[in-house]
């Protein structure tokens, strides 16, 4: 029974994947250093970062898990753009938009309470929404691609989309965040 494995079996199966994805995340760290440099032009920006990365992970892993179930149950097809896939894509993008707005407003509130230098609310909202929605759209299509490709190849999309989506998601999110900050700071609002 798979759940009652020995200690070493569990270690053998989880250790390589956990180490591999921690290396992938070092790229996120590299980009995070650039974001940090950029933060001097956008005071309060750092407050957004854990939320942006965390939400992207939460939304895309739930999306990946639902796609996997959908493929297994057959209401999402691997051959055409099915209705189940369309609805799930829409939900994932809508949630990215909604949570980005929530996050930026909370971050601005907390920043105004605790810190003397904060960028304007509109900058928080623009950075969060542009980065959140663009990375949300990109990652949703990548996750859908990985899920459908794995299913066609006879792999369980539950095992492939969740870990790969989480680490690719962080790298994509931090790049989108960096571009969004450069754009919004460039606007000079």
């Amino acid at each position: 029974m798979t759940v009652a494995k020995s200690t070493w079996r569990i270690v053998e199966e989880t250790l390589p994947i956990i180490i591999l994805f921690s290396f992938v995340e070092l790229f996120t760290g590299g980009f995070l250093s650039s974001v940090f440099t950029e933060a001097q032009f956008a005071p309060g920006l750092l407050i957004l970062i854990p939320g942006m990365l965390g939400l992207r992970g939460n939304i895309s892993s739930a999306f990946g898990a639902r796609l996997s179930s959908g493929l297994h149950l057959g209401y999402i097809s691997t051959k055409r753009f099915s209705k189940g896939l369309k609805i799930n894509l829409e939900i994932s993008i809508f949630l990215s938009f909604l949570t980005s707005i929530l996050l930026s407003v909370f971050a601005w509130l907390v920043c105004s309470w605790t810190s003397t230098s904060c960028m304007a609310l509109i900058n928080f909202i623009l950075i969060s929404v542009i980065a959140g929605v663009s990375s949300g759209i990109l990652l949703s299509f990548i996750t859908a691609g990985i899920a459908i490709y794995s299913y066609r190849r006879g792999l369980d999309p539950d095992n492939t989309t969740l870990p790969s989506g989480a680490s690719i998601g962080d790298v994509i999110t931090i790049i989108c965040l960096l571009l969004a900050v450069k754009f919004v700071v460039g606007l000079g609002l």
């Binding site: 309060g44 750092l46 407050i47 939400l55 939460n58 639902r66 939900i91 949630l95 996050l103 605790t114």
Partner: peptide, 24 residues
């Protein structure tokens, strides 16, 4: 799906802002 996700995500947003605050 929205009804189940929105409350959890809202709690996550709130907690994550505190992580960000600590970073800041």
């Amino acid at each position: 799906i929205l009804k189940e996700s929105i409350p959890v995500l809202t709690i996550c947003v709130t907690i994550s802002v505190f992580s960000g605050l600590f970073l800041n």
